[in-house]
Design a protein around this nucleic acid. Structure first.
Length: 760
DNA sequence: GAGTTTGAAACT
DNA sequence: CAGTTTCAAACTC
C-alpha cells in the first residue's frame, strides 16, 4: 500500500509538471501538498460553508476561493466548454444541478470572487456573464445571483432560519430547504426573465451585460434592488424599442391603471404566457408578484395580444401621454443603457448618500446614454410627482376621468418601483432634458397651468414652475420640491434650480433636508395593497394618503388647493382640514377605516402574518421606519391574497413611498424581478417582510401590538411633529386616539432580537 | 391675462 | 409651538 505521503508526492510531481500547477503555485503561497489537501478538504468545507456564509458575508468571501475552485472543477465536467453555446440547457442544468444538489456549492458560487486565485475563480463568472446574453443562461443567474440577489436571499433564508431557531426545531433541515427553495426560485425566475427578455431586442441584453460588468461586481446587496428596477425599466423599454411603441406602452399604461379587472387579465395573461411561471411551485412566491405579472403581461402582450384590448380601450391622447411618460419613466431606466446605468447611479447614490455626487453620477449617466437623456428629459417624472400620480391611479378610480388620467406609466412605476429610483431618474432628467424635453413641452403653451389642471397625469409627470421670488430654491417651487431642475417649460424667474447652479441647489437642498429630512419625500403615501385591493374600485381613500395631511380651511378639500385632493387621495385623521368633503375620502371616513382595520387585524391573527419593516432611505443611518404589520399590510404581503393571487408588489410601493428623496433612495429590489424582488422584500435586513411567518410565530407582544400601532398607511411623515420616533413602541391605547395613531410608525421589536449579530 | 383665493412653506 | 408672512399654484373672471 502506498502511503498517503507517496501519493501526495506523486500527485505533486504530476501537478508540478503541469502549467496549471505552476500557475497556482504562483498565485498561492500554499505549497503543492497543501494545495492538494485543500482540495481534498473542499467537500467537507463546502458542506460546512453555508452556515458560515449566513453568519457573515465576509466569511463567505474567505471561503470563496475554495469554492470557486471547487466550482470550477465541478462545472467543467458538466460543461466542458464554458461557452455553452450549443448546450445552454446543459449548462444551465449543470448549474442548476449543482445548485440543487448542493446548496453549499451554490452559495459558494454566488459569492464574489476572492482575492486570491481570482483568475481561476473569475474565469467562470466571466463565462457566465457572457452567457448572460443567452436566454437560457441560468448560469448567468448564478453569476447575477452572486452579486445581486444572494445577499437578500441569504438573509431571507437566514431570517427564516432565525425564526426556526426561535423554535429550536430542525435548523439545519429547514435551512437546507430554504436554500433549495431559494435556488429553485432563482432558477425559475431566471428562466422566466430570460424567456421574457430573450424575446426582446438583443441589444438590451448587450447593454445590460456591458453595464453589468461594471456594476455587478461592485454592487453589494443594495444594488440588487436597482437591478429590479432596471429590469422593469428594461421591460418597459422594450416596447419603445419595438415599432409597437404605442401598443406596448399602452399595455403598460393599462397595467398601470391597476384596475382590478385589468390586473386579473394581466394575471391571466401571465398564466397564458407560460407555464414556466405558474407551473413551478416556486412561482408561488415571486412569480405572483404584481411586478412579475406586469412584466409577464407585457411580454405576453407580444405573445398574446389580449392585453391590447385593454390598451385599445385607452384614448389615443392618453396613449401618447403615457408613451411619453413611459419614455421618461424608462428614461430613468435608461432605455438604451438602461438598467445598470441607472442602477449604478442609484446604487452609488445609496451608498454615497450624497446628493451632489449622486447628481453628478446621474449626469454622467445621462451623458452616456443618448436615449436616456432624452428620456430623462422627461424630467417630468420626479419622485414626488410619481408618488402623487400613483395615488391618483389608485385613488382616482372612483372617478373615471381621473382614472384615465392616472393611467400614465408614472403610476406603474411608482407602483412597482421605489420612488427613489424614480426620483433619481427624474432628478437627472432636468440636466439633459431640456433639449430632449423640448419636444415634449413644445405642446405646452403658456397655459401650462391649465394643462396641469386639465391633465393630471401629464402635469404630474411634467413639473413646471412659475416661481418669481423663490429662485426655485424653495419647496414652493414644484420642480425643486420634486427634486428636479427647472427646464425650459418653466416660467420661473431668476431661477437657480439649474444644473449650472448645482452647488447652490444641493446646498439649499441640504439645508432644507436638515430642517426636514423628509421634505423631498413623496407627499403621498400609498397603501401597498391598494393596487391589489379590489375594493379600490369603489373605495380608494384608504389606499393612499398624504404624508402629513392637509390643512384646508375653505376649499373643503374639493379643490386642488388641497394636497390630498390634488394627489387623488382621501383625507385621513391626520388631516387638519375643516369641512372635509374630499371625494377621494373624507377625513371622517378615516375613522371608519380605522375601525375596519382593527377588525381585519383580528382576522389577521388567523392568517399568515407578515411583518413588514421598512427602512428609511438612508440605510447607512440605519433609520428604520418601523411599522407593524397592519392587517392590510399583512394581507397584502401575504404570498397569496384572497383571490389566491400573489401580491409581492407591496414592499415596493410601500417602500417607495416611505423612502425619502429620490436620490438617496435605498430601496432595494432584487436584481431579478420577481424573485429577487420578492426575496428582497422578504429578507432584506432593512426591509424585513416575513411572508411565511405565521402569526403564531410572532412574539405575542408583536402580534398584539400590531393592531395598536398599525397604521393604514406605511408612511413616515416628513413633519417631525407627526412622525413617531423610531424604535419607539406605541402599544398603549393612548396612541390609538388622535392622529398620532395613524401617523405613528411603530418599530418592530422582534426582529432585532432574532437577528444574529453578523447578519446585518 | 390679470386678479383673487388658497394653503403650504418659511419665518418669527 | 403658534402665529404670521411669503410664496406660488389654483382658481375666477
Amino acid at each position: 500500500m502506498d502511503t498517503p505521503e507517496k501519493n501526495h508526492v506523486t500527485a505533486t510531481s504530476e501537478f508540478e509538471d503541469s502549467p496549471v500547477f505552476n500557475y497556482i503555485s504562483n498565485l498561492s503561497p500554499i505549497g503543492p501538498v497543501e494545495s492538494i489537501r485543500t482540495n481534498c478538504a473542499f467537500n467537507s468545507l463546502t458542506c460546512a460553508s453555508p452556515p458560515s456564509v449566513f453568519a457573515s458575508p465576509q466569511i463567505c468571501i474567505h471561503k470563496e476561493t475554495r469554492f470557486s475552485f471547487r466550482r470550477h472543477h465541478f462545472l467543467d465536467p458538466s460543461k466542458p466548454d464554458s461557452s455553452h453555446s450549443g448546450n445552454e440547457n446543459n449548462a444551465s442544468e449543470g448549474v442548476s444541478a449543482a445548485v440543487q444538489s448542493s446548496v453549499c456549492s451554490e452559495r459558494e458560487i454566488t459569492i464574489e470572487p476572492p482575492d486570491e486565485n481570482s483568475d481561476l475563480v473569475i474565469e467562470l463568472p466571466k463565462t457566465l456573464r457572457y452567457d448572460c446574453s443567452s436566454p437560457d443562461g441560468d448560469v448567468v443567474r448564478s453569476d447575477a445571483i452572486t452579486t445581486e440577489t444572494m445577499p437578500d436571499l441569504v438573509l431571507a433564508s437566514f431570517d427564516e432560519l432565525l425564526m426556526d431557531d426561535s423554535k429550536g426545531k430542525h435548523h439545519s433541515f429547514k435551512r437546507e430547504i430554504n436554500l433549495r427553495r431559494i435556488c429553485s426560485i432563482e432558477q425559475n425566475e431566471e428562466a422566466r426573465s430570460w424567456v421574457t427578455l430573450v424575446s426582446d431586442a438583443a441589444d438590451l441584453l448587450f447593454v445590460d451585460l456591458s453595464n453589468n460588468e461594471e456594476h455587478f461586481e461592485g454592487q453589494d446587496h443594495k444594488s440588487v434592488d436597482p437591478g429590479t428596477m432596471s429590469f422593469i425599466s428594461t421591460v418597459l423599454q422594450l416596447p419603445q424599442d419595438n415599432a409597437n411603441d404605442l401598443g406596448r406602452t399602452e399595455s403598460v399604461g393599462a397595467i398601470t391603471s391597476c384596475k382590478p379587472c385589468e390586473i386579473g387579465e394581466t394575471a391571466t395573461q401571465s398564466r397564458e404566457i407560460g407555464d414556466l411561471k405558474e407551473t413551478d411551485p416556486a412561482s408561488a412566491f415571486p412569480s405572483s408578484t404584481v411586478l412579475d405579472k406586469l412584466i409577464v403581461s407585457d411580454s405576453s402582450d407580444e405573445v398574446d395580444h389580449k392585453g391590447q384590448k385593454c390598451m385599445q380601450a385607452r384614448s389615443k391622447r392618453h396613449r401618447s401621454i403615457r408613451q411619453r411618460c413611459l419614455v421618461f419613466e424608462t428614461a430613468g431606466a435608461c432605455k438604451n443603457k438602461p438598467i445598470f446605468d441607472c442602477n449604478s447611479s442609484s446604487v452609488s447614490i445609496q451608498s454615497d448618500c450624497k446628493v451632489a455626487s449622486d447628481e453628478k453620477q446621474l449626469v454622467q449617466v445621462n451623458a452616456r446614454s443618448d436615449c436616456s437623456s432624452s428620456v430623462v428629459s422627461g424630467s417630468g417624472l420626479h419622485l414626488n410627482a410619481l408618488s402623487a400620480a400613483s395615488p391618483n391611479s389608485v385613488a382616482s378610480r372612483p372617478n373615471q376621468n381621473t382614472l384615465d388620467k392616472s393611467l400614465s406609466p408614472n403610476t406603474l412605476i411608482s407602483d412597482l418601483l421605489p420612488c427613489d429610483n424614480e426620483a433619481q431618474v427624474t432628478e437627472n432628467a432636468p440636466q439633459t432634458s431640456k433639449s430632449a424635453v423640448g419636444e415634449e413641452f413644445d405642446h405646452s403653451s403658456p397655459k401650462r397651468k391649465r394643462l396641469k389642471s386639465e391633465d393630471v397625469g401629464e402635469s404630474k409627470a411634467c413639473k413646471r414652475c412659475n416661481c418669481k421670488r423663490s429662485k426655485c430654491l424653495k419647496l414652493y417651487c414644484e420642480c425643486f420640491a420634486a427634486g428636479l431642475y427647472c427646464v425650459e417649460p418653466c416660467s420661473c424667474q431668476d431661477c437657480f434650480n439649474k444644473p449650472i447652479h448645482e452647488n447652490t441647489v444641493l446646498e439649499t437642498r441640504r439645508q432644507i433636508e436638515s430642517r426636514n429630512p423628509l421634505a423631498f419625500a413623496p407627499k403621498v403615501i400609498r397603501r401597498i395593497d391598494a393596487i391589489l385591493d379590489t375594493e379600490c374600485e369603489t373605495k380608494t381613500p384608504a389606499s393612499a394618503r398624504h404624508k402629513s395631511g392637509c390643512n384646508c380651511k375653505k376649499s373643503s378639500c374639493l379643490k386642488k388647493y388641497c394636497e390630498c385632493f390634488q394627489s387623488g387621495v382621501g383625507c385621513t385623521i391626520s388631516c387638519r382640514c375643516n369641512g372635509c368633503k374630499n371625494t377621494f375620502g373624507q377625513k371622517d371616513g378615516a375613522q371608519e377605516t380605522e375601525l375596519k382595520r382593527e377588525e381585519s387585524e383580528a382576522c389577521e391573527k388567523n392568517a399568515l402574518g407578515v411583518s413588514l419593516q421598512i427602512v428609511k432611505e438612508d440605510e447607512k443611518e440605519h433609520l428604520h421606519l418601523p411599522f407593524k404589520p397592519s392587517s392590510k399590510i399583512s394581507r397584502s404581503l401575504q404570498t397569496h391574497n384572497e383571490d389566491g393571487k400573489e401580491h409581492p408588489d407591496l414592499p415596493i410601493t410601500s417602500t417607495s413611498d416611505i423612502s425619502r428623496p429620490p436620490i438617496q433612495l435605498p430601496f432595494t429590489f432584487s436584481g431579478k424581478r420577481p424573485l429577487s424582488y420578492f426575496a428582497s422584500a422578504k429578507t432584506s435586513p432593512r426591509l424585513c417582510t416575513r411572508f411565511e411567518k405565521p402569526v403564531g410565530m410572532i412574539p405575542a407582544d408583536e402580534t398584539n401590538e400590531a393592531p395598536d400601532g398599525a397604521s393604514d398607511v406605511i408612511s413616515v411623515s416628513p413633519k417631525s411633529k407627526r412622525v413617531s420616533p423610531p424604535n419607539r413602541e406605541f402599544g398603549s391605547t393612548a396612541w390609538r386616539h388622535g392622529r398620532k395613531v395613524k401617523l405613528t410608525l411603530r418599530s418592530i421589536p422582534p426582529f432585532p432580537s432574532l437577528t444574529p449579530p453578523g447578519k446585518q
